[in-house]
Simulated scan of single mutants.
Amino acid sequence: MNSVKVKPTTQCHVVAMPYPGRGHINPMMNLCKILASKKKDILVTFVVTEEWLSFIGSDPKPDNVLFSTIPNIIPSELVRAADIYSFFEATMTKLEAPFVQLLDQLELPVTVIIVDTVLSWVVGVGNRRNIPVASLWTMSPSLFTTIQHIQADYISGSSK
C-alpha cells in the first residue's frame, strides 16, 4: 500500500511580538517553541528587528516557527543602555507602523498575537483588526508594577 504524505494545513497562526531587548526575546521564543512543538498545525511568526534577526537567526527552532523582520528604526540593542528612556520611547512610538505593515503582508490570517506586556500599543492593533491579543510578562511582579506606573506617566505626559 502506498501512503501519500500530506502537508498539514495550518489552523492556528500565532504572531509573536517581543519587546526588542535582552531578557524579552528568549522567553518569548521559548514560549513559541513550546507552542509549536505541541501541534504541527500551529504556525508561529516571530517578529524581530533586522538587528535582532542577526543575533538569533541561526538559533535552532522548530520548522513551524518563522522569523519576520521589521526595520531597525529604534536605537541599537548594543547602545540602548546609554539612553534607556529614548530606547523605551522609540519602542512605544516607532514600532507600531512597521508592525501593522508586516501584518498586512502575512499570507495567512492571524489567529492570535502574543505580545510582550511592555508593548501595550499592540493591544490597540489587535482590537482594530479583531485579533485576540495575549500578553506575556517576562519579569518579576514588582517590576510589572513599576513599568505600569512609568507607562501611565508617559501616556499622561506627567512625571511624578
Results as ranks from 00 to 15, higher is better:
residue 102 L to F: 01
residue 140 S to Q: 14
residue 103 L to N: 09
residue 45 T to G: 00
residue 14 V to M: 11
residue 91 T to P: 01
residue 142 S to V: 15
residue 92 M to N: 04
residue 109 P to E: 15
residue 81 A to K: 08
residue 134 A to V: 09
residue 36 A to P: 01
residue 128 R to I: 01
residue 76 S to D: 05
residue 118 V to Y: 09
residue 67 F to L: 03
residue 68 S to C: 12
residue 25 I to W: 10
residue 11 Q to K: 15
residue 104 D to K: 06
residue 158 S to W: 01
residue 41 D to A: 10
residue 60 P to C: 11
residue 22 R to Y: 07
residue 30 N to M: 14
residue 71 P to Q: 13
residue 135 S to D: 14
residue 139 M to A: 12
residue 8 P to D: 13
residue 11 Q to S: 09
residue 8 P to N: 12
residue 32 C to D: 11
residue 139 M to C: 06
residue 130 N to F: 10
residue 92 M to C: 07
residue 46 F to D: 09
residue 26 N to Q: 12
residue 89 E to K: 09
residue 130 N to E: 07
residue 115 V to W: 00
residue 46 F to Q: 08
residue 56 I to K: 09
residue 66 L to H: 13
residue 126 G to K: 04
residue 29 M to L: 15
residue 7 K to Y: 07
residue 151 Q to S: 02
residue 154 Y to Q: 02
residue 121 W to Y: 00
residue 154 Y to I: 01
residue 95 L to W: 01
residue 2 N to E: 15
residue 85 Y to N: 02
residue 70 I to D: 00
residue 118 V to F: 11
residue 112 V to P: 00
residue 107 E to S: 10
residue 47 V to S: 03
residue 85 Y to E: 13
residue 118 V to G: 03
residue 21 G to T: 06
residue 149 H to C: 07
residue 87 F to Q: 06
residue 48 V to T: 15
residue 95 L to P: 00
residue 119 L to N: 08
residue 56 I to D: 08
residue 16 A to G: 06
residue 81 A to M: 08
residue 60 P to F: 07
residue 47 V to N: 04
residue 53 L to C: 04
residue 131 I to P: 00
residue 141 P to R: 15
residue 84 I to N: 08
residue 137 W to P: 00
residue 43 L to E: 09
residue 36 A to H: 01
residue 13 H to I: 09
residue 81 A to I: 02
residue 141 P to Q: 15
residue 148 Q to T: 09
residue 52 W to K: 03
residue 135 S to A: 14
residue 52 W to L: 06
residue 142 S to A: 15
residue 31 L to F: 09
residue 10 T to K: 15
residue 160 K to L: 05
residue 1 M to K: 05
residue 77 E to F: 03
residue 139 M to H: 08
residue 48 V to Q: 14
residue 150 I to F: 11
residue 135 S to R: 14
residue 5 K to N: 14
residue 141 P to I: 14
residue 23 G to W: 12
residue 91 T to S: 04
residue 115 V to Q: 13
residue 112 V to F: 04
residue 138 T to K: 12
residue 42 I to C: 07
residue 113 I to H: 06
residue 96 E to K: 10
residue 68 S to D: 13
residue 88 F to Y: 11
residue 141 P to T: 12
residue 150 I to R: 11
residue 59 D to H: 11
residue 5 K to L: 15
residue 114 I to W: 06
residue 19 Y to C: 04
residue 127 N to G: 05
residue 120 S to G: 05
residue 75 P to H: 05
residue 156 S to F: 01
residue 108 L to S: 04
residue 4 V to P: 02
residue 90 A to L: 10
residue 121 W to F: 02
residue 152 A to F: 12
residue 116 D to V: 08
residue 76 S to E: 05
residue 79 V to P: 00
residue 83 D to L: 07
residue 37 S to A: 14
residue 19 Y to Q: 01
residue 82 A to E: 14
residue 103 L to P: 01
residue 140 S to W: 11
residue 44 V to L: 13
residue 129 R to C: 10
residue 102 L to N: 07
residue 16 A to E: 06
residue 59 D to V: 12
residue 144 F to A: 12
residue 81 A to L: 03
residue 99 F to I: 02
residue 128 R to V: 07
residue 107 E to C: 04
residue 37 S to K: 13
residue 146 T to S: 08
residue 123 V to D: 06
residue 33 K to Y: 11
